[in-house]
Computed example of a mutant assay.
Amino acid sequence: MLKLLRQSPLSARIGMGIVLLNCLVAVFAPLIVPYGETSVVGDVWESSSVKFYLGTDHLGRDLFTRMVYGGRNTIALAFITTALSFLAGSFLGLLLLLKAPGLTS
């Protein structure tokens, strides 16, 4: 595996690093973010500061916290849709292969 990684282009290694970083942030989100996902912790539309890295939204929720937890949802949704499309494509491909004339004995 390491040999394959060393032989891959730089752009592929950078992409894999970004995906790995996003997955690590998603897994360790409760340890990274300072507030709960739906906690109202500040005033409406506060600007970025030491307390709120990206500011707050229209309800006073921390935007950094919301983005990290949103990344978890995005990664899970991408994984589920990839798995479903792989399963559907495999099933349809096998079905068409079995029905193709001249390919069965």
Rank of each mutant, 00 (worst) to 15 (best):
A83V: 15
D43R: 08
A12W: 01
V33Q: 03
H58A: 12
V33C: 13
L97W: 15
G60K: 07
L24M: 09
F64L: 15
T56I: 07
L21F: 11
T65E: 11
Y35I: 00
L24G: 08
H58K: 10
S90L: 13
F86Y: 06
L59T: 09
L92I: 05
L21W: 12
P101C: 11
F64W: 11
L59Q: 12
G15M: 10
V50M: 10
L5C: 00
K51M: 05
I75H: 10
F52N: 02
D62C: 08
G93Q: 05
Y69W: 14
L103F: 15
R66E: 11
L21D: 02
T104F: 12
S85G: 00
L20G: 13
K99W: 13
T82V: 15
T65R: 12
V19I: 10
P30K: 07
L92W: 15
V68T: 12
R13L: 00
N73D: 08
R66W: 05
S48M: 11
P30F: 12
L20W: 04
N73V: 09
E46G: 01
N73S: 13
G60C: 02
V40L: 02
D43T: 08
G93A: 03
R13N: 07
I18F: 15
G17Q: 07
A83G: 09
E46D: 07
S39L: 06
M1K: 03
R66K: 04
S48P: 14
Q7K: 11
L59R: 11
I80G: 01
A76I: 10
G102C: 06
